[in-house]
Design a protein around this nucleic acid. Structure first.
Lengths: 313, 313
DNA sequence: CTGAAAGCGCTTACAG
DNA sequence: CTGAAAGCGCTTACAG
């Protein structure tokens, strides 16, 4: 009972060991200090309130945790200052890699980081030879949408954006829409609506664009988050979709599909994009050679009831 | 030019220092090893695909980063196993505190953690004397909703849940709805619909519940994510809201408000809940005495067009 | 194969 | 006030 036979003692030791283990847990700090690896991944997103970044974050989280990595997420709230501090902190934390979900506020900092040897994957912009993944994947969807409008006979399209400037991805997309519209002989204009604007405020802007002589016959919403504001604005203005004006949006969701009329959209699987990016990043830092040429599915245009023939005048 | 005057040398040293600083960044691992503080916060959410956890995560992120803390987020995907591993890892990382956005898969583990001195804040369940924050805040909204239905003359209500069991919050809520309905003289039944079910599958279940003799005249959707499925099911079944059946949901969003008819809902500000929880947690571990009695706004019931008089038979 | 030592980069208490 | 030393808890190379 108190250390007699040698076997009994061994047993007791094992038990004690097991008991200790119940609370013992090796210190990651100590290990990292020694090994110079933290098994930490930093993920920067411009704005978690924007729903496109949620599946992205889920994708990163998903593969990271399967590989034993933990993810530090920071919502930079579209602020250079917050991004700067976050990057400083992530570097102190010695993250093994950085994943950017959207355009960096300070791109110069990013290329500088790369120069120091930090692995950083950027979903939206391509630094030094790397291709901008998301814009590239999105392009086929944009083209398909433009072609669908043209095929139905639309002659003038309005691209609705939230007030505030476009980021790198936004500018690339706008350039593509411009080019495609022109080739297809459609007029194009940009319409600014404040996200979360009151229905009457949105109605004023949208009603004006649709109702004036030679007004737009179709609207493209630049982001899914803006769509409800646009829908309420149109509804308030007394405009019917699609008889008075067709509507499509970037992004898709169950709500867009459940809406009557169901809303068309350009959509791609950001979860999958994040998954593949993260796998590649983790492969890189493990020194594995990953075949970079397996790309996620490109974006598609989902045609639903909200896009139809233009009104006959 | 090469170390002549003492002043010049001092200047050069400053310059060299500044240059070095450009790449120097103190090691968080080393510091943590010494100080036994990591400035790390672990956040566990049951499922990031459930939109209620996104504002919650944003709230935590927001105050954490203002206070210099970084947040490790893990989506446990409703799996005990994933949760277990995540907790092990977060403990190795020596997070200064743990924040649970939803019910833990393994509550015993949590109370054990608390016993070892770990600070853990749980939004959905209260361990040992702490009150379950979210259920408590949600209750007034549930009551208001039940009363609204009763006041309009509804006699039988269906509570639509996703297939799969209820968690702690779900059970508490169900118990409250049961009690309130009974007190108000309304019948109640639970209806199970698979999230993401095809419209015809959902239509079968919902149509049956509404159309049969003495069927339900109103539906409550247990979570916002399920609402689109219910909407499409009702639409497929040829049922009009609210003339054939009223509809309310837990949660609210721009899409719910933009839907025609606009969807009623029980809603509260999870961003604010997370904000206050996190402030309290950080205050605790800093040894500050925070007044725990400032509570976030409780949930409200937003009455919109989707809830109206029951059909007259 | 086992065991003691060195060292990762900080902070903190202590000596000068 | 400044500076050298000890030590946080690991891993890894090295000696026995």
């Amino acid at each position: 009972m108190s250390g007699k036979g040698p076997v009994k003692q061994a047993t007791r030791e094992r038990v004690e060991l097991a008991i200790q283990r119940l609370s013992y847990s090796p210190s990651a700090s100590a290990r990292s200090l020694r090994t110079a690896r933290t098994m930490l991944l930093g993920v920067l997103v411009p704005d978690l309130a924007n729903p496109v970044f949620v599946p992205f974050l889920r994708g990163v989280q998903h593969v990271a945790q399967k590989e034993g990595y933990s993810v530090l997420v920071v919502d930079v709230q579209r602020s250079v200052e917050v991004e700067r501090r976050a990057l400083d902190r992530l570097l102190e934390l010695r993250v093994d890699a950085l994943i950017l979900g959207g355009n960096a506020r300070d791109p110069a900092r990013i290329i500088q980081l790369r120069r120091t040897g930090m692995t950083v994957a950027d979903a939206s912009a391509g630094g030094r030879g790397e291709r901008p993944l998301i814009p590239e994947l999105e392009a086929p969807g944009t083209v398909a949408m433009c072609e669908a409008f043209a095929a139905l006979g639309h002659v003038r399209v309005g691209y609705v954006t939230a007030s505030g400037g476009l980021g790198g991805t936004g500018r690339r997309r706008w350039a593509l829409i411009q080019r495609r519209s022109q080739e297809l002989g459609m007029g194009l204009e940009q319409i600014r609506v404040t996200r979360g604007a009151t229905p009457d405020a949105a109605a004023l802007v949208l009603g004006g664009a649709v109702r004036r002589a030679r007004g737009v016959t179709a609207l493209i919403c630049s982001t899914l988050g803006l769509a409800p504001t646009v829908l309420r604005g149109l509804s308030f203005a007394g405009l019917q979709i699609p008889s008075d004006c067709s509507l499509a949006t970037y992004g898709d969701s169950d709500w867009a599909a459940a809406h009557r009329p169901a809303i068309s959209g350009v959509t791609m699987d950001l979860f999958e994009v994040a998954t593949m990016m993260t796998q590649q990043v983790l492969g890189n830092i493990a020194g594995r050679q990953v075949d970079a040429e397996v790309l996620p599915e490109p974006a598609r245009f989902i045609l639903r009831e909200s896009v139809a023939l233009p009104p006959t005048c």
